[in-house]
Structure formats: structure tokens, C-alpha cells
Amino acid sequence: MSLVQLKDISKHYQSGDEHVYALDGVTLTIKKGEFLSILGPSGSGKSTLMNVLGCLDKPTAGFYQLDDHDVSSFSSKELAAVRNSKIGFVFQSFNLLEYATALENVMLPLVYAGVNLRKRRAKAAELLERVGLGDRMSHKPNQLSGGQKQRVAIARALVNDPQIILADEPTGALDSKSGAEIEALFSELHHEGRTLIVVTHDISLARRTKRIINIKDGKVVDDEILEPSSTIYHRREGD
């Protein structure tokens, strides 16, 4: 069963006199439970692809189906709802609210989902425990190390139980030890049956995923399956 279906997705814009094709006819299918990476040098269009996948950006042309919904026709209000319920983001620069505590940061998606405070707290606390930050809940981002910040961000990405977790260079701003911890966490999440998409230019990070999609000049140039995704894990129930 395919979770994501992209058909002829293009994204172009005018930059000065130049007509830039950030994405040029990308067709792609991603199944539930896959752990894949989108690999490419900077300027290859991989970030644009991630923005389109994450409903942060609308394609200029093409068809995008996510979990049986044609999101390419959605309004910005509907896209917000999709981001809220189906997608979890992990960014290179963490993107945490600086004045809010770790717990409040993790609770944020639940606020916009209309979950009440008591449930928000319980769910956010559970996920911070899950990423090993049970003792850092009331710390603010500036009191946390890079690796800890990224784990807060992962907890936030998981809190709404999304269909896809999108990670943009998740280890790019971390030292190698913290980076390895994050990679290990991703592997765990994959084994729990979650769908993970990692966008990176780092081949060694890409090698840890099960499928590598190579992007160049806005086109998919290679789609390499490292480990046949025969093992579609069942997602944990009740979280």
C-alpha cells in the first residue's frame, strides 16, 4: 500500500532572468513503513522535494497523493491540518521555540490539534521519556545540548502520531556522537514501523536507510533499494 504518490511533480520559479526548475517531473511512490533517504548535493532540489512532501510548499505542477488525499489541491488551511495530523518535521537547526520549555515545545502540535491541556502534558511527557529526556522537561532550548535539542524536536515530530516523519539533515548540526545517537533513534523508530524520510547530502547517513533516492537538477537520477522492504513492520498500537 503506497502512502505517498508523486506524479510528475514540478516546481519552477523565476530568479532574476533565470527560470529555475527546482523540481522537474518527479515521480515517486513511498510505502508505509519505509525508511528512505533523499540524497543530493545542495541545489539539487532535495530540499524543495522535502518541502513539497511536507506540505510546506505547493508544487507548480503535478499530482501529490498522501494517505489517499489529493493534497496538491488543498488550501493553505487544509495543508496546515495535514501537517498537523500526518507529518512530523525534524530540522537541521531544530526549530524549537526559544522561550518555551522542552515540554511546551513538544506539546505545540497538540495545541493546534485541539487536545486539552491534561492530555497534551501526558502525551508530551511520555514522548520526552521515550527519547530519553524525562529529566529535561522543564529545560528551555538554550539549556540543552545540540543532541538533546534534536531529541526534543523528534519528540515533537512524534507527538501527533504522524504518518510520515520528515527529517532535513537531522545530524548536520551535531557532533558525531550525538549524530550517531540520533541515527540509532531513527533506526528504532523504523523498527517500530514508522515511515521515515531523511533528506541529506551525507552519503554515510543515507547508507543507514533502506532506500536511497538520488536527486540531481530536480530530477530523480537513481532509486536504489539497499534492503528489500519486505519487512513492513506493524506500527505500535495505542500510542
Binding site: R83, N95, L97, L108, P109
Partner: peptide, 13 residues
């Protein structure tokens, strides 16, 4: 940036 974060996690306009 905070507005962007909020929107990314699902805040509607």
C-alpha cells in the same frame, strides 16, 4: 521563525 515553526506543526493562518 516562530510563526514558521507553528505553521509547520499545524497552526492554521
Amino acid at each position: 521563525r516562530d510563526i514558521g515553526i507553528r505553521m509547520a506543526v499545524g497552526a492554521r493562518p
